[in-house]
Design a protein around this nucleic acid. Structure first.
Length: 240
DNA sequence: GCGACAG
DNA sequence: ATCTTGTCGC
């Protein structure tokens, strides 16, 4: 039987922090929660025309600890503005399609520490380019009620069409455009961009391109990744 | 039943 | 994601 514990009420309209991966956990309820939350995702622009601050988030792991990192950059100059990290006990394993349940808690903890209010958040992972249309970026967007963009290094579901001269191609899943493969650096593997929440795919692509500096990965996520790993090293050092 | 499968 | 050194290429 798959009906144990209370994961989340599928009719509830407010997204919750992830459940514990213990005896109360049920994949069936996690799925129900994803389907319900997916309906609340807004795939249109609900962000200022002029973006001032863009954030990047990432998570690193040290033993049983998850380290969430959040960085804020100036949108035009990509200059660093602020960074925060947070330690949280890892309470969920990595399960394909359920990534958000593992990373949303440490990420949220780091975001709560920010003094700056970002206009949009770039997330390492899929937005709606997910089998249930609720990747980590979308789940996080609903939780914080802010515009989020999913930027993944590889595909979870769907197939990318042929790259056009515009530097990007639609990512199709079940006949639906769920995202785009974007060539952020010539000759390199594309990045997979998808709507997280409160942003259109077109604007999401524009934002990701604006944030490219020297790497294939947009600067906010790259910076968050460095901050998370820096904190990871410090934690390992202090841990012995 | 057999793969595929974000980080 | 994480475990890990040097090494090939622009």
């Amino acid at each position: 039987m798959e009906e144990r514990g209370k994961l989340a009420n599928p009719r509830r309209f407010v997204p919750e922090l992830p459940v514990q991966f213990d005896s109360k956990f049920s994949v069936a309820k996690a799925r129900a929660m994803q389907r319900c939350l997916a309906r609340q995702v807004i795939r249109e622009d609900r962000l200022p025309e002029k973006i001032r601050f863009v954030a990047g988030v990432d998570v690193a792991y040290v033993g049983e600890i998850s380290i969430g990192a959040a960085t804020v950059l100036d949108y035009d100059s990509l200059a660093p503005v602020e960074s925060q990290v947070a330690h949280v006990e890892t309470q969920f394993p990595y399960i394909p399609t359920l990534l958000s349940f593992r990373e949303i808690s440490p990420t949220f903890a780091a975001l709560k520490k920010l003094k700056t209010q970002p206009d949009v958040f770039l997330v390492d992972g899929q937005g709606i380019a997910h089998p249930y249309r609720l990747g980590f970026a979308s789940h996080l967007g609903l939780l914080i009620d802010k515009p989020t963009v999913g930027v993944a290094k590889s595909i979870l579901c769907g197939k990318a069409e042929n790259m056009t001269d515009k530097g990007w191609a639609n990512l199709i899943d079940n006949g639906e455009i769920v995202g785009a493969a974007v060539m952020t650096r010539a000759g390199r593997k594309p990045v997979y961009v998808s709507v997280g929440h409160k942003v259109s795919l077109e604007r999401a692509i524009e934002i990701v391109k604006n944030c490219i500096r020297t790497h294939r990965i947009p600067e906010p996520i790259l910076t968050a990744h460095k901050i998370a790993n820096e904190e990871k090293r410090n934690t390992e050092k202090a841990d012995r």
